[in-house]
Each structure stands twice: as C-alpha cells, then as structure tokens.
Amino acid sequence: MLLVNNVTKSYNETPALRGVSLEVPTGAVFGLLGPNGAGKSTLLKLVMGFIAANGGQIQCQASPQHIGYLPERPSFPETSRVDDYLRTAASLAGLRGRAHRDAVAGVLHTVGLSDMAGRRIRTCSKGMRQRLAVAQALIGDPALLLLDEPAAGLDPAGQVQMRNLILSLQQAGKTVVLSTHQLNEVAQLCSHVAILSAGRVTRIGALNSVLLAEPHVQIKVDAHLLEPPHADLLTALRSQAPDIAVEGNRITLVGAAIAHKTAVLRLLLDAGLDVQGLVQQQANLEEIYLEAIRP
C-alpha cells in the first residue's frame, strides 16, 4: 500500500527525517512509534503531500486526495453542526446526490455520532471531536488512513472507543498508519510497527517479529558475582560472549549470548554455585522501545 524509501527532510537545516525507509502492507495497522520530535508527524505530512522531502521516494497506491487523514490537532468551524461540517467535507470530496447523503450518514454511524449529528461542534467533547475528525477522514471511503495521535487528550473511556473504532476500520479492510507514542495503543492495535528516534527508524517489522527480536535468559545464583572471590569466574563468563551482563547475583544473556546458556550453567556449577532460577523470555514492547530510542 505504501512504500517509503530513504526519505530525508530538514527544517531550516535541522534534520527531521534521516533516511527513513518502511513498507506498509495492504490491510495492516502500522504503528509509527516514537517520542515527541521523532519525525512521525513529518512523515505523515510527506505522504499527504503537504510538504516536500529533501530526498528519497514515497510510493503509494492511493493519491493524497484519496487518503483519509487525521491531523494531530484537528480544528473545526465551532458554530457549524456536526452533520453540516461532514456535508461540506463530502462536497469537497466530490460526492453528489445519494452518494453524498449515504457517505455522511455512513461515517456518522461508523464513528458513533449519529445521535449527535445536529449538535454544534462547540458543544462537543474532546472525544466527540476526535471521532468527528475520524469521520471526516473516512469521507469518500479511502483505503488508506493516516491517523496522527488519534487518542491524544482522550480520557480512558475515549481511548477505548478510539481503539475499538480503529479495530473496526481494520476489519472493514482499511489500511491504517497510526502515529503514536503510547505503547498500549501499539500493543493492542498494530500488526506492524516502526520505532523512530531522532528521525531514524531503529526497529521495524511485524509486531510479533519485533517482540521476538530481543529474547533474553536470566540466571539467578546464590552469590554476588561482582565480589572479589568470583573474579576468575566473572572473567570466564564474560569470555563466553559479549552480550553476557552480570549484576549482583543475576546473569542476563541476550542476543548471541543465549546460545551459550549451557556453557554458562556449567561454569556456574563447576564453581560450586547454586543455580536458584532460570527464566527465558522475549522482551516486552516497553523494553524494546526504550532500547530503540536510547541515544
């Protein structure tokens, strides 16, 4: 659906994106995850054609006028009614006659605002405004949706409503690119994820593969390994692989070091230590995220 290849963008010589490449499959919910200032909003604006890249290519099966876009801070004509605002959006999208009427009624139903159609926008809550912004993005039935921080500022109930709405859009066959810095959104919604930090992609792939990318093994023994009596054992452990970390009475194996688990256990037992526990697990999204954005 969307291919971004080595895209760069700077503002007044300040880099915002530094060679970003990613591919969004059709039908995916693709999470752009990263802290504020990572370049997520800039990337979405480039896809929409609102700004121009300094380098690289963006290829999309949908043209910008056929992409649904929710900006990070949507604004509305405060005195307009909800349905009037959407009628205007439908007209700007080129819809006429029955298609125009059906589009407005359809998006109001999709976002759960049918009962609020006659309300003035100035009387709408933050959650209603966010749903209205999504409704506007859905006018014209776009296949690709770009949602920039859709749950920003919402209370817990509003976040659940937005999450359910995005899931319903995926079930309806939409491709969704979701920009966020909220880990729970990505974990519950996304099939794919790219983590951005300082304008660079630091992790990318299907969510399951990203989570499986950093498994680790933790071994607990009955002695403090950093104390002088265990200096030779510590040297022997660290010689096994560079990814062995020792802290107190715990040894953590990550990456290539996991393959040396048996050798590490043999060293510990030969040294007369009691192995009190061994846990092997994949890293969670929070651990991967914090590692990915580390300077």
Rank of each mutant, 00 (worst) to 15 (best):
D115I: 00
D115Q: 10
A117T: 02
A117S: 02
A117L: 01
A117V: 03
G118V: 02
R119G: 01
R119M: 11
R120C: 06
R120P: 03
R120I: 04
I121C: 10
I121V: 12
T123W: 05
T123S: 14
C124V: 13
C124W: 13
S125F: 13
K126E: 04
G127E: 04
M128A: 04
M128D: 03
Q130D: 06
R131P: 13
R131D: 12
R131E: 12
L132S: 05
L132A: 02
A133Q: 06
A133G: 15
A133D: 07
A133L: 07
A133P: 08
Q136S: 12
Q136R: 15
Q136A: 13
A137V: 14
L138M: 02
L138I: 01
I139D: 04
I139V: 14
I139H: 02
G140H: 10
G140I: 08
D141V: 03
D141K: 13
D141C: 09
D141H: 12
P142R: 01
P142S: 02
P142E: 01
P142D: 01
A143C: 01
A143I: 00
L144A: 04
L145W: 09
L145R: 08
L145G: 04
L146E: 00
L147Y: 14
L147N: 14
L147W: 15
D148I: 08
D148H: 09
D148R: 08
E149F: 08
E149P: 07
E149R: 05
E149Y: 07
E149H: 05
P150L: 06
A151Y: 15
A151V: 15
A152T: 00
A152Q: 05
G153W: 03
G153V: 03
L154Q: 11
D155M: 09
D155S: 09
P156L: 03
A157G: 13
A157Q: 15
A157P: 09
G158M: 00
G158P: 00
V160L: 15
V160D: 10
V160W: 07
Q161H: 14
M162E: 07
M162T: 07
M162L: 07
M162N: 06
R163K: 09
R163T: 05
R163A: 06
R163G: 04
N164W: 04
L165A: 12
L165E: 12
L165S: 11
L165N: 11
L165D: 11
I166E: 06
I166F: 10
I166N: 08
I166D: 08
L167F: 00
L167W: 00
L167D: 06
L167A: 12
S168G: 09
L169A: 01
L169V: 01
L169F: 01
Q170W: 03
Q170R: 15
Q170A: 14
Q170C: 02
Q171N: 10
Q171V: 00
K174W: 07
T175A: 14
T175V: 13
T175K: 15
T175C: 14
V176Q: 00
V177S: 14
